[in-house]
């Protein structure tokens, strides 16, 4: 409970600092490159495998019920609504959450954060605001790209044991997708990104106990972020259900 309160205070500080000048534009762009662009190969590869495997696993069941033709639609809905955002966010938490936690933790124990402050820089703004903003904005982009690659993997999966044209596959996917499928998934990925960023930064920024603490920061950043991702997912699903968006 204590830690939840501390993370909330940390998040409030983020919002206070984010809108005050001086804006660290160049560091923010660098973080977008590191957090977004450099995560793309991993997200792309896992997305591709996820789409392929999901299609191969679903096919026998659908054949059993005589609805094999619905395979692209089902895979499309599953990926766009739920599996794409959640799996991408979990991989993102593993890669970026741990890296932010370890980087800031190491900077903390080697006095680099203090050195930054002495150098006339607000370390919270330079290190935390830029990373959290980059994570919040880059994860939705990665989710969209991951979904697209995943659907391509699914298309190849469909064609392993059958012949479906590219056009037919994507027509079936998009004809069955509604605005209510895409929008909540897109919005929740911003929250996932924010959660990964803020938790990673919090764990690193308040890292203690030397090098042992750095390892703990990285580890707990991933564990806590992953749990929070599921909690946010649960809340968003309830809200979309209440608003009748599905």
């Amino acid at each position: 409970m204590q830690e939840t309160g501390d993370v909330s205070v940390f998040a409030i500080r983020f919002f206070k600092e984010a809108f005050k000048p001086r804006y660290e534009i160049s560091e923010f762009i660098r973080q977008c490159f590191v957090i977004g662009y450099k995560s793309l190969p991993l997200i792309g590869l896992t997305g591709f495998i996820m789409g392929l495997v999901l299609t191969m696993q679903l096919r026998p069941s659908l054949i059993e019920y005589g609805v094999e033709s619905q395979l692209p639609a089902m895979v499309g809905i599953a990926i766009v609504r739920e599996i794409g955002p959640v799996i991408t966010a979990l991989i993102f938490a593993g890669k970026i959450g741990s890296s932010i936690g370890a980087e800031l933790g190491s900077m903390k124990v080697t006095e680099q954060i203090d050195a930054m402050e002495v150098s006339g820089t607000n370390p919270f703004k330079y290190l935390v605001v830029t990373r959290v903003l980059a994570a919040t904005l880059m994860l939705p982009v990665l989710v969209m790209l991951g979904d697209a690659i995943s659907l391509f993997g699914s298309y190849l999966g469909v064609n392993i044991r059958g012949v479906t044209s590219f056009h037919l596959f994507y027509t079936q996917v998009f004809d069955n997708l509604a605005f209510g499928d895409v929008l909540p998934a897109f919005i929740k990925s911003f929250f996932f990104g924010f959660a990964v960023g803020i938790i990673g930064c919090y764990k690193g920024y308040y890292s203690a106990k030397g090098t042992e603490g750095v390892g703990q920061s990285a580890n707990s950043a991933v564990v806590v972020s992953s749990i929070v991702i599921f909690v946010i997912d649960l809340v968003v699903v309830q809200i979309t259900d209440l608003l009748n968006l599905n």
Binding site: E103, T110, E111, D114, A115, T121
Partner: peptide, 21 residues
């Protein structure tokens, strides 16, 4: 301020470390 641990920024070159302040 000369820090006990030097506190050089690991992700920056020597030039960038000096340019930063």
């Amino acid at each position: 301020f000369l820090f006990q641990s030097n506190a050089l920024y690991d992700s920056m070159t020597v030039r960038q470390n000096l340019e930063f302040p």
